[in-house]
Design a binder for these strands. Structure first.
Lengths: 225, 225
DNA sequence: TGCACTCAGATTGTATACAACAAATTGTAC
DNA sequence: GTACAATTTGTTGTATACAATCTGAGTGCA
């Protein structure tokens, strides 16, 4: 375990490290791990390791079967479907609210950004992040709802474990662009109803892409059930 | 600590007990507690007590300031507002989905139940639970989304800590009945759009009641900020 | 061979001792 | 009396020892 100048609790460090390992595919869903393993790897005792694992268990990343052991949790297709229902609901209402809350200035920025992306369309490579990320970010920033953000953040991490790259399917980038364009247009018109509708369609569309990726692109091996 | 025939982990028992104390107002928001206190009260060691408290901390019921101590978390007005935005989104979409998923049989039951309530209207006392609870339950049962239920369950517990009785404000019972009637009508007509709309209005209405109760009925003392 | 049983190893569950730190208290000088 | 430093007390943070339980291999017996 590297330096610890700010005296953060060891359990927090262990938590971050293990979560990183999860997000980086260093720990594969379904595989078994032991507390002793992390204890030795990090050079700390079992107590903070256990704390970290228990926290991750509550967040759905690990599973513990009593007196047997720890396992890296997978995500079932059902989980994905359920998560996307929640995302659709929350991001939809966020868009509706943002239509009233976004400042004219930010809307300007977003439109400029969108236009710039549009011009690059032909030449740009698709390896960058989904250009719509910034739109989502600005929406959540405007809505400023911590409870909502907490839920969505968790799901983002869960999904990121499996397919950051779902947006890289053929044709997905362009489609995604169009969807974001629709959202931004509704926002610019301050039309909350349409913003919510467009956002929901966008979420549903990305759900389809991800499910596609899951079943076709052999991500299947990481999934439960 | 009473009997433990099923060998449930002590930490689980501690968790349930402490959470009960929270929901029963035995532990007041803002007050300080110590691990030793629960350790002695339950006759167990610090380890499972700590686990329980850490779990409750993650769920937002307790707060820990490092090297200082544990405090019972309050809920700020902002928290309530935020929670209700999430509830509105989730329960709304649940209603929309339920319009397709509810069986004709359950819809029949609900309509019968609603009618029965309606006839009792004059004589019944309002001390029972919100009659709409069963409607919500049936909706969630039909939607059958564990992720969604997890989030809503948590918020229910959080809010229950403060005002089970918010629905008992003058006039609230009748209003609530009418709102539920609208929801059920839309569901019966299999009109998801209207069901979502009616549910949202219902949630907003109950939010207002609760905020009213909070600021007027001297619940204020338990709130932060 | 097949089956039940025992026992050793591994892993989590719990208890407890000690370390690190914060706050309160006390003692002292002025 | 007040200000300030030293000490004492109380609390959480971490380490570690032991208990409880599960797993699986090996053994004995039919």
């Amino acid at each position: 375990m590297e330096s610890n100048p700010e005296k953060k609790p060891l359990s927090d460090i262990a938590y971050s490290q293990i979560k990183n390992m999860l997000l980086e595919f260093e720990l594969h869903p379904g595989s078994a791990v032991t507390e002793i393993m992390f204890m030795q790897k990090f050079g700390i005792s079992r107590t903070p390791v256990r704390q970290a694992l228990q926290r991750l268990e509550q967040e759905g990343f690990m599973r513990l079967t009593p007196r047997k052991g720890w396992f890296v949790a997978g995500v079932s297709l059902r989980d994905i479907q359920e998560i996307f229902v929640v995302r659709e609901a929350l991001e939809g209402i966020a868009a509706r609210l943002a239509a009233e809350l976004l400042t004219q200035e930010v809307l300007g920025e977003l439109n400029d950004y969108m236009e710039k992306i549009s011009n690059q369309e032909q030449t740009k490579d698709v390896d960058e992040f989904d250009p719509g990320d910034i739109l989502h970010d600005k929406i959540f920033e405007a809505v400023n709802n911590q409870q909502m953000n907490r839920v969505l953040r968790l799901y983002d991490d869960q999904l990121r474990r499996f397919h950051i790259m779902a947006c890289k399917l053929p044709g997905r980038a362009l489609l995604s662009y169009k969807e974001h364009y629709e959202i931004l247009r509704a926002l610019t018109e301050r039309n909350g109803e349409n913003a919510e509708k467009a956002m929901r369609e966008h979420i549903q569309s990305s759900k389809l892409s991800i499910l596609d990726a899951v079943v076709n692109e052999s991500y299947g091996k990481w999934f439960e059930c």
